[in-house]
């Protein structure tokens, strides 16, 4: 065949470049179908409106606000994420493109590509929901730096902890419910940390070193590294 090349010259290709190819393909597909974004954002916006409508910004007393608002914010973020983060893998299975992907891409590259895609979705989710939540609920934050760091590191942890679960449930039955059931216990430590961090940021507790952010970062690193090790086992054959 004239157009083909022998594959022995693959030295220049890295896991990263292959992962980026998968990431961009998912983004392109997502841009054209808005499959996952619609699910996540509509879920998030609906919940946000429900919370804001039923509670409003005056119902909760000043003293209770930092804690309760942090809880509400993270419940919205975590459950919106759980409603849509499995889409990228589930869609591969539903459109029966998974086998071709298994035959052409290295598992670690697939994991990283899907992780990047999920992190992009989470970034979009947080960019829309967090500012709206602050505005609608009149959320006063004393330490914006800590707050932003907590939201970002919490988002990375959400993606890092759930991407491998998404790959598993895509190959199982009863996918939608199973994703939340499996992910939630894994996410609980992260969620409790993030709530505490956001509460401290709102109150303005002076705690040097941002322990909550550090726990969230450690959680993300551990989950991503473990997933990279374990992913080939659930992806191949």
């Amino acid at each position: 065949m004239k157009g083909g090349r022998w594959i022995t010259e693959t030295g220049s290709s890295t896991y990263l470049s292959e992962a980026v190819a998968i990431w961009f393909r998912d983004l392109r597909g997502e841009f054209r179908t808005r499959y996952a974004v619609n699910a996540i954002l509509m879920f998030a916006v609906t919940t946000l409106i429900a919370v804001s409508f039923s509670i409003g910004s005056f119902r909760i007393g000043e003293g209770e606000q930092p804690f309760l608002y942090a809880v509400l914010l993270w419940i919205i973020l975590v459950f919106s994420a759980l409603s849509g983060l499995s889409r990228s893998f589930v869609k591969e299975e539903e459109a029966s493109t998974m086998d071709v992907l298994k035959l052409s891409a290295r598992p670690q590259a697939v994991f990283l590509g899907k992780l990047f895609f999920n992190l992009t979705l989470l970034a979009a989710l947080e960019l829309i929901i967090v500012p709206s939540f602050i505005l609608l609920m009149d959320y006063k934050i004393e330490l914006p730096g800590l707050f932003v760091a907590m939201v970002v590191s919490g988002g990375v942890g959400l993606g890092g902890g759930t991407t491998i679960v998404a790959a598993m449930i895509a190959q199982a039955s009863a996918r939608g419910a199973l994703f939340s059931v499996l992910s939630f216990p894994l996410l609980l430590p992260l969620m409790i940390t993030a709530i505490k961090g956001c509460e401290k940021a709102a109150v303005g507790t002076n705690n040097s070193g941002w322990p909550e952010v550090r726990i969230a970062v450690a959680y993300s690193v551990v989950m991503i590294v473990m997933s990279l090790f374990l992913f080939p086992l659930i992806w191949e054959e």
């Binding site: 693959t10 220049s12 998968i22």
Partner: peptide
């Protein structure tokens, strides 16, 4: 996509 993902 398949070219890139295969590393060619």
């Amino acid at each position: 996509f398949f070219c890139k993902v295969r590393g060619i």
